[in-house]
Design a binder for these strands. Structure first.
Lengths: 232, 232
DNA sequence: CGTACCGTTGAGCAGGCTCAACCGCTGTGG
DNA sequence: CCACAGCGGTTGAGCCTGCTCAACGGTACG
């Protein structure tokens, strides 16, 4: 659908009484953005931009999953966020991207020049407010990430991570897609990949989850699952 | 100065070629915000709002330091961010504050109703873009926080924390104010307060920093200091 | 001067990291 | 068709660092 209407943005709206995540943009706004954006395809694993390079473009995801990450001097890699359909990224400010972005699955993106978007925002206050909502929403995501990684125990972090993925999963109830590698998950969670693997095995062994293949998890015991996720 | 001109916002501006943190608002905008905001004083330690309560107001800090935190079921407390002059907070969305806010020092705030601010933003696209810049800036801060807490070693985390405080310190070069308690710092860093204490002692013992009282740190060996902060 | 709070220091324990071997699937070339 | 290498993932052994529990020290305030 997005393919025809132009990009959307997903977030909770401003102000009271709106708890649901909804598409933010009006039809007019979507077609307006579509008119200043071009569509691009990236195969799995392709780098979209590199940390430190000139930040000329802003992206909105039409479909697929992107990871945003930063490589540290030690060679370690920190995944800062996973991005899904209707997420915005590349709003880097100050001319350089602060991190790198890479396609995890095949990805379709809307791409527009920073300056073009800035003009559009300055002409359309409603549009600017929508973007504001979106970024506030993302900041909340960043805070949740912080809460996750400050947990001590690997099982707890992984469980919260699964819960987070579940909200972005389009599978049926209690089935969660793990589209990224264990390494990516570990880099997001601030754990070693072994710790992630052990935590998943642990959850499986205690009958809380089951694997259907290596990339799909089924939640068997929702009560204990939620208890672990909440107990920190 | 802010007292007379109305609130400001500090962030890097949108687009290329602007790397500096600057006041974002025009005089007109500052007086406009001042006209819809009221000024409030909070003594040290006072709670500004509580997590889960009705989010009716948005705040801009005129002076002082605020911490934003969340209490977990286990009784542990996570400090999500420290807020300084010209920072905005309370943009909670969906009607309820996601976390609590408390004054660490005596604080002066501009306060405005969410709905009033939303109206102002929808009428003034430039103003909305400025807020957008601000929130993007804050999101970058949240990402830096995430990078800090995913470090393994306490000394490294504390050093990065000192570096962060230095940027918000109004003391002269190489002197850093620690306005918050060790407990607050520990809750921000995801460490026990003992670990924070030991890390600071360690830095002092190795001659990298020195204490002038318990709340002011002087950086003695900038080279090693930066090396520790960068080495992760 | 006593009390309370904040901070420092010490001893022992636990959980995650590192190093390393092994497993299973995939793609490739003989 | 099979052998092999390569990659992603799992599992095991030992170490290291930060947590917990606990006692002590110093400073502010009544």
């Amino acid at each position: 659908m997005s393919e025809f209407l132009g990009p959307s943005l997903r977030a909770t709206v401003f102000g009271p009484g709106a708890k649901d995540v909804v598409g933010l943009l009006s039809l007019r706004q979507r077609s307006q953005i579509a008119s200043i954006a071009t569509s691009h395809q990236f195969p799995r694993g392709e780098l979209i931009y590199r940390e430190g390079s000139n930040a000329q473009s802003v992206f909105i995801i039409a479909s697929g999953i992107v990871k945003s990450f930063r490589d540290l001097p030690s060679g370690k890699r920190r995944v800062l966020t996973f991005l899904f359909a209707d997420d915005v990224f590349g709003l880097a400010q100050s001319g350089q991207y602060m991190n790198s972005a890479q396609a995890i699955t095949p990805v379709t993106l809307y791409r527009m020049r920073v300056s073009t978007l800035a003009d559009a925002l300055r002409r359309d206050a409603d549009l600017a407010v929508q973007f504001l909502c979106k970024v506030v929403h993302e900041r909340r995501g960043a805070l949740r990430h912080t809460v996750i990684v400050t947990r001590r125990d690997a099982v707890g972090r992984v469980t919260m991570f699964l819960r987070l993925l579940e909200q972005n999963s389009d599978l049926d109830k209690d089935r969660i897609d793990l589209p990224m590698s264990r390494v990516d998950a570990a880099n997001y969670l601030g754990l070693s990949l072994e710790a992630v693997s052990r935590a998943l095995s642990e959850l499986e062994r205690s009958g809380i989850i089951a694997f259907e293949g290596r990339r799909i998890v089924r939640v068997l015991d929702r009560v204990r699952f939620e208890k672990i996720a909440a107990a920190l």
